[in-house]
Structure formats: structure tokens, C-alpha cells
């Protein structure tokens, strides 16, 4: 599968794929403080967009605006437009629960529910009524865990608590849980930052496979990771989107000197 990726020819992908999500002058405020100063970026269908930048640059904040997870923070306010298939997701008529079913999220720290592996996976499908019969649920669990590359490791202990897995397994369980809802977009907020290198490699492989069926936006601290998994990369700095473009270009020939400074390690 690795050889079918378009890492070497990123521009081709972006050109052929329709725009899945689009941010237009997105500004985010925490109380009086402005965390994002007007971000414009498109995310294309079936691509992996990586967001990099020094900590506190607003990349996680931006990611969380994409499925309105910022709604849970009282003082947070979002201006501008974010379109999902051309619809503004901040439109009051649009339903946030439905939005999150379409735009799933995987968090920095693995957060399996204190339930069995099986129940973790069917949690979303049950909520959204994606299945009703036991065999349907069984099928969803098997498929989702297979897609998350966890099936072989856990198929004999599906009814043991998900919190008993190792860190890497937990994170893959969380990915399986997100995948089970059949979202259109999956947002990943530094999904590997709490994991060891082997588990990280596992997840990175997985991301590449998931791209076949989903659109993925991933925030990462790790520039090598961005280079490995993404087709396009966006560089954030102090609440600004400095530049976005094919990953190859950003890493080899950045246009902005701030980007250059960051990827050459002058700060970060």
C-alpha cells in the first residue's frame, strides 16, 4: 500500500480531489485573547493535511474548530466560516452532534472509555443508530478493529476493558472507535505524542491506509511525522497560518523564512 501513496507527487492529488473542508478567515478568541488571526485553508478529500508549528501556535485550536470541539470551552468564540462540503458548520441550523458524527476526532492522549473493547467500538454506532442487530455490531467491531490494525491483537479479549491495553493499542482502539462511526473526516490531535516509537510507526502506517476512505487532518509536533504521513502541510506560527502547500515543497523549499527557521530547527 505504501507504494500507492502519492507522497512523491503531492500536487497531483490535490488537483484531482474536490475540497472537503474549507476555512475562511477563521479567528478564534479565548475571552479577550485572540488565538487565531484569520486562517484560510482548504482540505481536500482523501488527503492527509498535516499541521505543524511551535507549541502555542494555534494548530490544535484550529483543529478543534473543525468539529466544533471548542464549543465545550465557555470562553471560546469563533469568527469566520468553516465549510464542510460547502455548508457552514457554524451555521446555527447545522447540528453539532451530526457534525461530529461526520467529522470524527482522535485525541492527543488515548482516552478509551472505561468499558470493554467491544463497547468502546460500538459506542458511536449505537448512538447514531448505525446498527441494531448483534451481528451488525459484531461486523462493525471486526471491521473497525481491522482497519485500526488491532483486530489480531484483541480479537480474543473483546470483552476486557479497553483501559487494560498498552498505550499504542489504546490509541488504535480510539481510532477504531472513530472509524466505526463512518465519519467523512478524521481529525487527529498529536495522536502519537504519548506513544513510543514502535507504536508511533504503527499509527503512521495506519493513517496512510485510512486515507483511502477518509479525509484526515493531523496536528503534529514532529516534523518527520508530518513528512512521512501527509500530502500537504500547513505551518502555523503565533496564531497565523504562515504557509500551506505540498509537504515536499514545505520541507524542501519553504517560501516564508519563519517556516524555514522552524524546519531547520532554529526554534520550535
Amino acid at each position: 500500500m505504501m507504494d500507492t501513496t502519492t507522497m512523491t507527487m503531492p500536487t497531483e492529488t490535490t488537483a484531482t480531489q474536490p475540497v472537503k473542508m474549507s476555512a475562511k478567515t477563521v479567528k478564534v478568541f479565548y475571552g479577550e485573547k485572540r488565538a487565531l488571526h484569520g486562517v484560510n485553508v482548504d482540505i481536500y478529500q482523501n488527503e492527509v493535511l498535516a499541521m505543524i508549528g511551535p507549541s502555542g501556535c494555534g494548530k490544535s485550536t484550529f483543529l478543534r474548530t473543525l468539529n466544533r470541539m471548542n464549543d465545550t470551552i465557555d470562553i471560546c468564540r469563533v469568527e469566520g466560516q468553516i465549510l464542510l462540503d460547502g455548508e457552514d458548520i457554524y451555521d446555527p441550523r447545522l447540528d453539532v452532534v451530526q457534525l461530529r458524527a461526520r467529522v470524527g476526532m482522535v485525541f492527543q492522549k488515548p482516552n478509551p472509555f472505561p468499558k470493554s473493547i467491544y463497547e468502546n467500538v460500538i459506542y458511536g454506532p449505537k448512538l447514531h443508530g448505525l446498527a441494531t442487530r448483534k451481528d451488525e455490531f459484531d461486523a462493525i467491531v471486526e471491521q473497525s478493529l481491522k482497519r485500526a490494525g488491532l483486530w489480531n491483537e484483541v480479537k480474543d479479549r473483546l470483552h476486557e476493558p479497553g483501559t487494560g491495553l498498552s498505550g499504542g493499542q489504546q490509541q488504535r482502539l480510539c481510532i477504531a472507535r472513530a472509524v466505526a462511526v463512518s465519519p467523512e473526516v478524521i481529525l487527529m490531535d498529536e495522536p502519537c505524542s504519548a506513544l513510543d516509537p514502535i507504536a508511533t510507526a504503527h499509527i503512521e502506517e495506519l493513517i496512510d491506509e485510512l486515507r483511502e476512505s477518509f479525509t484526515i487532518a493531523i496536528v503534529t509536533h514532529n516534523m518527520q511525522q508530518a513528512a512521512r504521513v501527509s500530502q500537504r502541510t500547513a505551518f502555523f506560527h503565533l496564531g497565523d497560518l504562515v504557509e500551506v502547500g505540498p509537504t515536499e515543497e514545505i520541507f524542501t523549499n519553504p517560501r516564508d523564512e519563519r517556516t524555514q527557521g522552524y524546519i531547520t530547527g532554529r526554534y520550535g
Partner: peptide, 15 residues
């Protein structure tokens, strides 16, 4: 990884 029954376009209608 078998392709999911719910491919991308279908999932849209699901939600």
C-alpha cells in the same frame, strides 16, 4: 483491511 461497507459517499447519507 477490507473495505468498509460504508464507503465515503454512503456515510454521508448515513449521517
Amino acid at each position: 483491511a477490507e473495505p468498509m461497507q460504508a464507503a465515503a459517499p454512503m456515510s454521508t447519507s448515513r449521517h
